[in-house]
């Protein structure tokens, strides 16, 4: 579990340079990626489907990003995009295209469809987190 966290943490930090996120925010982006991926793998070990675990993982990333965005006064995208990197189905997308090239249409359809669902599930989890972030925002300001 700790190893998984470290892998995803550094993968997210690597990507945050590729996406040019500000130096000071990289640590937080890495944390988002790490926690999202750990939750995803832990749930998957319990035998849950990749679609459900991706949703929960992305939800964690989204919530953490909203919290960091409030604290660091940055748009949440800065943390969301590197954070979802370990979860996004880039490999599935590539693999289904490779299967098409290799004339393995059954595999291509199966992986391709799963990829589409996973991508849409991650997107909806992020949107749910953002919506709640917007709803909660006024109340946080009132408390201060």
């Amino acid at each position: 579990m700790i190893l998984n966290f470290i892998y995803a943490f550094f993968a997210s930090i690597g990507f945050s340079v590729l996406f040019n996120i500000p130096r000071k925010e990289m640590l937080y982006a890495g944390l988002c990626g790490g926690f999202g991926w750990v939750v995803h793998t832990q749930l998957q070990d319990k035998g849950l489907s990749v679609i459900f675990t991706s949703f929960i993982g992305a939800l964690i990333v989204g919530i953490l990003s909203e919290i960091f965005a409030k604290q660091r006064k940055m748009p949440a995208t800065v943390f969301v995009i590197p954070g979802i990197i370990p979860l996004v189905p880039g490999y599935g997308l590539y693999f289904s295209m490779l299967s098409i090239i290799e004339k393995n249409y059954d595999e291509a359809t199966r992986v391709g469809f799963e990829t589409l669902i996973v991508a849409s599930v991650i997107a909806s989890a992020i949107i749910i987190a953002t919506t709640f972030g917007k709803l909660i925002k006024p109340q946080i300001y009132k408390k201060q």
Partner: peptide, 23 residues
């Protein structure tokens, strides 16, 4: 190949596409 392709593959572009469509 899987690992080293990740900087190229458009997983984020795909997820963002769905994000835009949903909103």
């Amino acid at each position: 190949v899987i690992g080293s392709l990740m900087p190229l593959v458009p997983g984020v572009a795909m997820t963002n596409a769905f994000r835009d469509s949903i909103s």
